[in-house]
Amino acid sequence: MAVPAKALLASGPASTKRTASSAKKWKPYAFHLVIGLLALVMIYPILWMISSSLKPNGEIFSQAYNLIPSRLAWENYRSGWAGFAGNTFTTFFKNSLIIVVISTIGAVASSAVVAYGFARIPFAGKGFWFGCMMMTMMLPHDVTMIPQYVMFSKIGWLSSFKPIIVPQFFAIPFFVFLIMQFIRTIPHDLDEAAKMDGCSKYGIFFRIVLPLIVPSLVTAAIFSFYWRWDDFINPLLYLNNPKLYPVSLALKLFLDGDSINNWGGMFAMATLSLVPIFAIFFIFQRYIVEGISTSGLK
C-alpha cells in the first residue's frame, strides 16, 4: 500500500497554514483522539487480562484498573500450567492441537473438492444440493445436536475426539462458499485449454485450479483453526474425561468448585490460550481481512 502518500495526505491540512482554518487544522487530532480513546476502551480488557496474569495474586483485584504489576509474577504461569488433578496444560494444549490440526486438514481438503464440483461441473441436481448447502449454513446447531449425540453414543464414540473431528471431513458450507467465490475468478479459458491438452476434470482440478486457489484455502484454514480452537460445546458434550480436554474446556475448570483461589493462574492460562490466535492473526492478517470482507465470515 502507498503508505507515504497516505501519510502526506494525513499531515497535509496541518502543514499548509495558508488555507487551513484552525478547525480544519485540529480535525485530524480530534479524529485521532476520539478513535484512539475508543480503541483503548476496546482493548483495555485484553491488556488487563494479560497484566493480571503477571500480577501477584493479592494484587489482581486491589487496584484492578492498574495495568502495571508491582513485580512480574511469572509463578502464575507455573501454577496455572500445573492444571487439575494431575492433568497439566501440556495435555490440554496437546489435545487442542490434535483436534484443531486434523479437523482443519479435513475441513479445507473436503471443502476445496466440493467447491470445485459446485463451481465448475454441471450435473443433474446441482441446484438442489447447492440449496441444501446454503440452508445448512443457517441451520441452528441445536436442531442436530441431540440426534448427533445419540448417534455417536450408539456407535461408542463418546469420550473420544471422533465426534468432533470426523464431521469436519464432510465439507464446511462456509468454506465451500468462500472457495467457490475464488474459483469463479479463474477464467474458464484455462480449463478449456487444459481440456484441449487432454486433461480430465480431476487433472484440471489438481493441476490448474488447486494451485490458483491457495489463498482461499489459507483463509479457510485460518478460520477453521479459530473455530476449532475456540470450540466449547462439542468438547463439553463429547469429552467427559479431563485427560481428553482441549484448552477451551480446561479453562472452565478454573471456575468450577466453590471458591476460586488461583486467580493469577487462571488469567495466565487464559492469556496463553489466546497466543496461537494472536500469532496467526499477526502472520496472516491480510488473508483474514480479505476473507471477512469478501465472504462475511466471522
Partner: peptide, 21 residues
C-alpha cells in the same frame, strides 16, 4: 464427476444434517 466431487458434502449432509433433523 460432479457427484464424485460433491460427495463429501452430500454424504455429510445426509448423515450429519438430514438424518439428525
Amino acid at each position: 464427476v460432479g457427484y464424485l466431487f460433491t460427495a463429501p458434502f452430500i454424504i455429510g449432509f445426509l448423515i450429519f444434517t438430514m438424518f439428525p433433523m
